[in-house]
Design a protein around this nucleic acid. Structure first.
Lengths: 143, 143
DNA sequence: GTACTTGCAAACAGTTTGCATAGGC
DNA sequence: GCCTATGCAAACTGTTTGCAAGTAC
């Protein structure tokens, strides 16, 4: 679990101002397991706080990446998904429901070098049908 | 090594017409190790065959994915890269030169299921500085 | 008070689409 | 000759940018 307040404190330490918009984005994102897109973040925040714009959402996402509090997932070519969980783990993209899910199962990955290239990070993306959608399908067959 | 002719034959078998444009895209792509974007394919082909349009490039890429002769890589959010090598392997994105390189080193990955989700495919993307760029940097330091 | 941040709208890049015309088989 | 494929331009989507006005500190 990540405390939104510690992220806000980090922002202030790094010289970023704590505007209500930024606070809203941080509070919405932290501990969010949905891996939302910028568009989803914008639409969700709009409901609660009508004074949030697209540029501010993008601006805040940019900053949160810079200070290493979120990661951008390129699991779908269409739009970027954002993940507040920064510890190493993987992701599963369900081709039926479109949801992005965490995969915690361990995969052994070289940590610093691979084939003479210096690594700074890596991502593992799995694609298929998620357990939830498989359950639904089973039910439909039984009908 | 993949023979462009076998891909062309497959296209014909599946009922797709072998237009000069499609042939050009297939010949350009097969055995290409650059993981080009649609835009790059378009610009390269233009030089040789001025009668190629964007829509045709995209159309052909779509078809080649359908018949499993190329894979789309979402290694960069900006634009899709395409890979004619369909056997399992991984990719490295150099943050300095922007090139996408093959990584053949083996990584053990579950093949059919992960955490109760049914797998259809997966991708491993590494990010960092490639061996070529590291060499260049070393030379610069020695100057 | 001042520099940073915001909201807006316009710009931009990559991709997709609709449709009249061309051409593979 | 038929039916699919092409080229063009326009539409569309996600993201970025420029700038005047607002606001955290």
């Amino acid at each position: 679990m990540k405390n939104p307040d510690s992220v806000l404190a980090k922002l202030r330490t790094k010289g970023y101002k704590l505007t209500p918009q930024r606070v809203a984005v941080v509070k919405y994102l932290m501990n969010n397991k949905e891996h939302p897109t910028a568009d989803l973040i914008y639409r969700k925040l709009r409901k609660k706080y009508p004074m949030v714009s697209f540029s501010t959402v993008y601006n805040t996402l940019e900053i949160l990446q810079e200070i290493d509090e979120i990661k951008e997932l390129t699991i779908s070519q269409k739009s970027a998904h954002f993940d507040p969980k920064t510890e190493p783990h993987h992701h599963f993209f369900c081709e039926t429901c479109g949801k992005v899910r965490d995969v915690l199962q361990n995969v052994d990955i070289p940590s610093q070098w691979i084939e003479n290239h210096r690594l700074s990070s890596y991502q593992i993306y799995f694609y298929g049908i998620c357990s939830e959608c498989l359950k639904m399908k089973k039910k439909e067959v039984l009908k």
